[in-house]
Computed example of a mutant assay.
Amino acid sequence: MELKYKSIGNYIHLIDNRNTDLECTKLVGLTVEKKFIPSVANIIGTDLSKYKVIKKNQFACSLMQVSRDGKMPVAMFREDSAIMSPAYPMFEVNDEKELMPEYLEMYLSRSEFDREAVFYAIGGVRGSLEWSDFCDMQLPVPPIEEQRRIVSEYQTVEHRISNNEALIQKLEETAQAIYHHTFVEGIDEENLPEGWRKGKLGEIVLFKVGGDRPAVYSETLTNDCTVPIYSNGINKKGLYGYTNKAVVKDDSFTISARGNVGTCFLRRKPYCGIVRLISVIPCKSNLLYYLYFYLSSMNLQGDGSAQSQITVPQLEDEDVIIPNSTTLTKFQDEMTVVTNYIEDTECENSHLRTLLSLLTSKLS
């Protein structure tokens, strides 16, 4: 079937509904990843009557800095209503019998759309996209029945991803509850259970400080670079890139030494850590999950006046309760089952997101 391409502007129009009655107080923003998020802006003393109201199936976008960011932030709102900064242009579909808002959102989420938007963006520091140029961009418009089929397929995959994310959250909460029940509830530090003792982290852990970025480096997974490189970031669990040689091969976890100080992530496959990241390698395998939860809950604070930083000597001197081997092994076995389930579900979601990209790529 040959698709008809028409200008996006033929199917949408700008809207500008203000919060004049002050009925709406939920403030949201729009990220470069095309997601609505609760705004953290301080609105004390702000005249909210000047803010724009966005409602279900309406769109908000940002036309500024498109060239710099390499993306055009744009998304369809799915809740009842919220308010946004007047700086966001908002629009809606003229006739949903001709163009489904959900289909339009799918098209605007494509990486190919972003590349075209960047091409049309004005040069210079801000690299803005004019509204007229956005409206002139071409959109393939199949019959409404075909749009419904495409949207249904897409939403089925989205729903599975959402369910998986909810399952992962429940599993993580379950793991926390088991840890708290086993090692926190009813434990008196002055009268420890039989076989438990107090010690220092340095007795039971090997710490390895991250080095410089490896000479062999790739931003993406390649045939030569298959070993993940981790930094102190939190997005994608600190994934920085890939290299060809692992520095840490044992099951371990990492702690951010600077920036996101104290943030911990499990690392159960060989990897390479770089600066501002400390690898925590337990001396015995049954200590892995216990120490991971123990240090994650400690709210570690760094030293230094200019910028907070955790050091290896500081960690080595931290007090720790060391349970008996039987308790540690039982907890290790339970957490291994939970973690395997989480990782399998995360892997499934990764494949499902690839499927979403394939579905949107077929729209052109």
Rank of each mutant, 00 (worst) to 15 (best):
I342F: 01
N94I: 08
E318I: 13
A87E: 11
I178R: 12
V40G: 11
N286D: 04
A215W: 14
P270H: 10
I150H: 10
N232K: 00
L63T: 14
E194C: 10
I322E: 11
K237L: 02
L295H: 06
I278N: 00
I83V: 13
S49T: 15
I161R: 00
V151T: 04
I255T: 05
E343T: 09
I8N: 12
S252N: 15
T25P: 02
V53R: 10
V184R: 07
I234N: 06
A41Y: 09
G211V: 02
F293C: 05
V93A: 00
I150A: 06
G202L: 06
D80E: 12
S128K: 09
T339P: 02
P140E: 11
D212W: 03
R148G: 04
S296N: 05
L277A: 03
P38R: 06
D16W: 13
A60V: 02
P38I: 05
S109T: 08
V74P: 12
Q147V: 08
N260R: 00
P143N: 11
Q169E: 14
R68Q: 13
D80Y: 10
A60D: 05
E130N: 15
S285R: 13
L359H: 05
S7A: 14
F36N: 08
C24A: 05
E343Y: 12
F183L: 10
R126H: 03
E79V: 01
F134G: 00
E33T: 12
P101W: 07
V141Y: 08
G233S: 05
A87L: 06
K200D: 02
K97H: 14
P73Y: 07
S231M: 01
N286I: 02
L355Y: 13
L355W: 13
G29E: 01
V40S: 10
P270W: 01
F207P: 00
F36A: 01
N163Q: 15
I122E: 15
K269Q: 14
E346C: 03
A246H: 06
M64N: 10
D344G: 07
E102R: 13
L167Y: 12
L239T: 00
A175N: 06
R197L: 09
T182L: 14
S305K: 12
I234M: 08
Y341V: 14
G262N: 06
N163I: 08
R353P: 00
S279H: 13
P142K: 14
K208C: 06
D317P: 02
P142S: 13
P214F: 04
N191A: 06
V151I: 04
L22F: 13
G211D: 09
Q58A: 00
I43C: 08
A60H: 04
N42I: 07
V93P: 10
R18E: 04
I281D: 00
L27A: 14
T31C: 02
N223I: 07
G9A: 01
I37Y: 02
K200Y: 13
F119E: 10
S67C: 10
E158T: 08
Y290G: 04
Q301W: 07
K34E: 08
D303A: 15
D95L: 03
V93Y: 03
G238K: 00
S279G: 15
F91S: 04
L139N: 04
G195E: 07
Q301H: 13
E172M: 15
W131K: 08
